[in-house]
Design a protein around this nucleic acid. Structure first.
Lengths: 341, 341
DNA sequence: CTGAAAGCGCTAACAC
DNA sequence: GTGTTAGCGCTTTCAG
């Protein structure tokens, strides 16, 4: 069996409580004894049993994270930020992937809630009522990439971001801009649509809704046809993965980007710079968002003195690369690269 | 406070032990009582406290997963497989990312070991001695993508895979093949090098070692120059990400792929089909590998009757796409697509 | 088949 | 400052 606090106590010639104190409340014990206890503990290879501690303190030292799809590179980045900050504060994190199934999320919340001190719901797809129910399950909840009532959240400044995109496109001369929306269940998808609408009116451009598609490469592929027949000169994709799918389908049809059609993504995943042409996209500070969500959670748990806002918006930044260009430049542009079919 | 087993007992008019049994050992209790207890429990919204249970059973119901870098798309796929299988068996999983720091791994093992029933070390970078030490920390350990002594493992059939690659390339007429190795700390990197050497001798081709690079896009970019001056006609990259970097740098230099140089990756990450040209690569069944590792772990925990091998190799498959082609076809090929600079 | 009692490893009053 | 006691929520002998 593993070495317990009693073993340490015995070996150090003190009582279990003294060992406990030496470990958790260092200044409640005589420096000399503490020193000795710590040395003995270390020597015996003592590791506190967090479950036992949690049973009495009510703290598990664990955080839970639920997200829609780890295969979307956006999420691993957020996860890295979350883990970094969590480990920093000596928390471990449970990660659970709902596979884009809104129905699965509540179940995951339920099974995680009792084993964690707090829950981070990243881009949750569940309905508002469910979300509020989820926020009810004992452990404090922080939303990432979504807002709902007064539930603490780290959101993205979507409206401002959409404005950056539309301004960029309008500046390039585009008047009709298409939007490939993500899943209907996506809050940020709706937010982005809303932001795009506002920005379009503000800049006097027309926004064409190209429909809802899965937030994947395939979704983008499927959206290409509609984008083409809609007669827009630029299209904004729900996220970078979708933009890649769009780009791939456009290339297959011999459509020159950005000569005939400009494409902009959202997220700025690492791959955006790796593909050719590199993708113009709206950067979201993914790791920072992850870290911020942990900070907020720790604050809620009373581990942080500083008081972050309960709902905070992360800034975005437009990264102009090569998939956007001026309108009406078809002829020169398309001569540069001959389509493969 | 949350509803406990005693609340249920009281409400159902039985003792706590009966409730416990009704939940965990259904057939040790009268069907009628069990039924009633279960209904009451459900009605009260009772959720067992796993930490408390674990304290006595010694089982936490948790699994730990340590991997080098979530940002490499290879890993999220494995994680998905692991989670799927783990949730299936009602286990939750802690995920920890070491950020490619071999030194951090042992620490993660330590901090996770006591809170889990088993540990999956995915592509661990630590040294053999450390690995054996890690396998010593109470919780059973399963290695993924590595073999070490008799530690249970799910490895990849690297030798066979390398043979597939070399055969493909040799069949295309290539005689000098370069290998961009990953980090020195990577076991599979060394395995692959070994396999490549064997395959090269077997097919009468020459293997040129291009040096060690980080297993990232940037690593591939940095490796390009060396590949070019080495005079090889084909290069095998440590993984797909590295292959992408290579491809990107080659394009920037106006080198036609596969006209002047063939490139093959390893992993077959989702992005391999999304880039242009699509990457020829060695498929590794990532989700299956993840699932297999959980199966093995559960077996070790006595939850599985069937006896999987303690060390199992997952098969690979070569997926030929467009970055490999016959040698000496430079002239026709390069006319097809004009480099951008 | 069911209840009473003990105790998993730890911390938190409460004494001393 | 330190030891003693009780008990977190649960399972598991041991009786009945």
């Amino acid at each position: 069996m593993a070495v317990t606090i009693r073993d340490v106590a015995k070996a150090a010639g003190v009582s279990p409580s003294t060992v406990s104190r030496a470990l958790s409340l260092p200044d409640m014990v005589d420096p000399a004894t503490r020193e000795r206890v710590l040395r003995v503990a270390d020597h015996l290879g003592y590791r506190p049993n967090r479950a036992a501690r949690g049973l009495i303190t009510g703290r598990t030292g664990n955080l839970g994270l639920i997200l829609p799809d780890l295969a979307n590179p956006f999420f691993p980045s957020v996860v890295k930020g979350i883990q970094h900050q969590a480990h920093q504060a000596d928390y471990q994190v449970f990660v659970a992937d709902s596979d884009e199934d809104p129905g699965a999320e509540l179940g995951l919340v339920r099974s995680l809630a009792k084993q964690v001190d707090g829950l981070i719901l990243c881009s949750p797809r569940m309905r508002p009522a469910e979300l509020r129910e989820a926020a009810t399950f004992a452990a404090p909840v922080v939303l990432v990439n979504r807002k709902e009532g007064s539930i603490p959240a780290i959101a993205i400044a979507n409206a401002a971001g959409m404005r950056l995109i539309v301004d960029h496109l309008a500046g390039l001369g585009h008047h009709r801009i298409g939007f490939v929306a993500g899943p209907r269940s996506s809050w940020s998808g709706r937010e982005r649509l809303r932001g795009l609408r506002v920005a379009a009116t503000a800049t006097g451009t027309e926004l064409v809704e190209l429909g809802h598609f899965p937030p994947t490469f395939e979704g983008g592929v499927d959206a290409a046809e509609g984008a083409l027949i809609s007669g827009v000169t630029a299209v904004v994709a729900y996220n970078d993965l979708t933009a890649f799918g769009l780009l791939s389908a456009l290339r297959a049809r011999g459509v020159d980007v950005p000569g005939q059609l400009s494409v902009v993504g959202i997220d700025d995943i690492q791959m955006a710079t790796m593909v050719h042409p590199p993708l113009t996209t709206l950067n979201i500070p993914k790791e920072r968002t992850g870290r911020a969500s942990v900070d907020l959670l720790l604050h809620l748990l009373g581990e942080r003195a500083d008081i972050p806002d309960r709902v905070r918006e992360m800034p975005t930044e437009l990264v102009v690369r090569e998939t956007t260009g001026p309108i009406n430049s078809t002829s020169q542009q398309s001569a540069r690269r001959t389509p493969r079919r």
